[in-house]
Simulated scan of single mutants.
Amino acid sequence: MSVLDRPAGPVPPAPAGAPVPFLDLSGVHAGLRPELDAAWARVLADGRFVGGPEVDAFEAAFAAFCGARHCVGVANGTDALELVLTGLGIGPGDEVLVPANTFVASAEAVRAAGARPVFVDVRPDTLLIDPAAAAAAVTHRTAAVLAVHLFGQVVDVGELSAVASRHGLAVVEDAAQAHGGTFDGRRAGSLGHAAAFSFYPGKNLGALGDGGAVVSDDTALVDRVRRLADHGRCGRDRHRHVLAGRNSRLDALQAAVLAVKLPHLDADNARRAAVARRYRETLPGTVHPVAVHPSARSAHHLFVVRVPDRAAATGVLDRSGIGWGVHYPVPCHRQPAFRRWSRGPLPVAEDAAARILSLPLSPTTTSTQIDRVCTALGRASR
């Protein structure tokens, strides 16, 4: 029985001593190798490598998975965000509210659309966008707010939508880290006006290269995004370009790979949740996991903790052969490329950036590996 065929449940034991990978993509793919080989052979035989039936099938399946009407496959998650903003008519002269604690792509997409990012602080428990901070940052130029579902946890879009509705703003989900996550039982991708997903290989639903998607119930927006992503072509006449578009399309091979992985996503996320539970039960008292909202079911893309001394913690992990990451050590408003749009200090994001640490987490992470990580962190905090 392969790793991915095991029923979700308690994290299994594993031999001690081997390095602990931060992300075990080879283990994830091992159980899917026959299906992936068949997908490659099918695409190779068909010969349609851009668009075609593989892309159509995946778009339909992913829209249904998210609980949305439409999905458009694009080249990557950053493009997906930019295309949504452009499709909504957001551009020069507009402002978009962006949480300071996010990957820089969130801000890059706003700039690529021609708008100005306005950085706002995050909640101290979940490190997700603070609706009160967002409300305080609204001006007459504000056109949208990015609900960034970070670390796998879905933003309370209801609270954010209340702010948006008072000011006539679009709520755009940046769901690059939340494939399968939910809030109040609704999946990421079904909560805002539109959502942008990334299928970068390390995501919970990852391709074997770059890929992304736009998901929405708005038929007109999806049609516009599809045209923008395909050189602005008219759907009825591929030689007629009705918009000044670009080339941002999901290729058939990546769509076929994603279609293989999608049916396993919920089970993989359940295993990630089991890993997260084991961490919470085993971590030393000086290490504090980022909170999960009681109404959210996190996809557990990352397991992020606060540590008292990150240099000491990472040093012990390195010496113990344990992988780790930091997401993210420099808030967006402090990045050199975006400082000009900073409106001052954002203390919650800045404090978190100095102390957060991401621990190993994969569907294949074992109880023995978790125990080794927690023992190492205990030594670091003595």
Rank of each mutant, 00 (worst) to 15 (best):
V155T: 13
V307D: 02
H239D: 12
A134L: 02
Q254E: 10
L83V: 08
D217S: 02
T182R: 05
L44D: 11
A256N: 06
V96P: 01
P15Q: 15
V316N: 06
W324Q: 01
F49S: 14
V163W: 09
P19G: 08
V98T: 03
A337T: 11
H264E: 00
S165L: 10
G87W: 08
A64N: 07
A256F: 02
G152P: 14
G185M: 02
A220T: 12
A113T: 01
H70D: 15
A100V: 01
D218Q: 03
R297S: 15
F22S: 12
A143F: 00
Q335F: 12
V72Q: 10
V11N: 12
H264L: 00
H264V: 00
R310V: 13
G315E: 09
T314E: 05
H301C: 10
A57M: 09
A162S: 12
T368V: 12
D174H: 12
E173V: 10
G232H: 05
R272Y: 03
R226G: 09
A60E: 13
T368G: 06
L44A: 12
A270K: 07
A273F: 08
P289D: 00
V292H: 03
R355N: 06
A137C: 08
L128W: 10
P53N: 14
V257D: 00
E159A: 15
A337N: 08
T102C: 09
P284G: 04
G378V: 12
K261P: 06
T142A: 03
S295T: 14
R310T: 05
L221I: 04
V84C: 14
A220H: 06
L262Y: 01
L346I: 06
D94H: 12
A64V: 10
K203N: 09
G52A: 11
R116H: 07
R187F: 01
A188N: 11
A273I: 09
L128R: 04
F58A: 00
W324R: 01
V222C: 03
P53W: 15
R372M: 02
G31T: 00
G192T: 06
V43C: 02
H149M: 03
P308E: 07
V290L: 12
R310K: 04
S2P: 14
F151D: 10
P19Y: 07
R271G: 05
L128V: 07
R48H: 08
D210G: 14
P331L: 02
V145G: 14
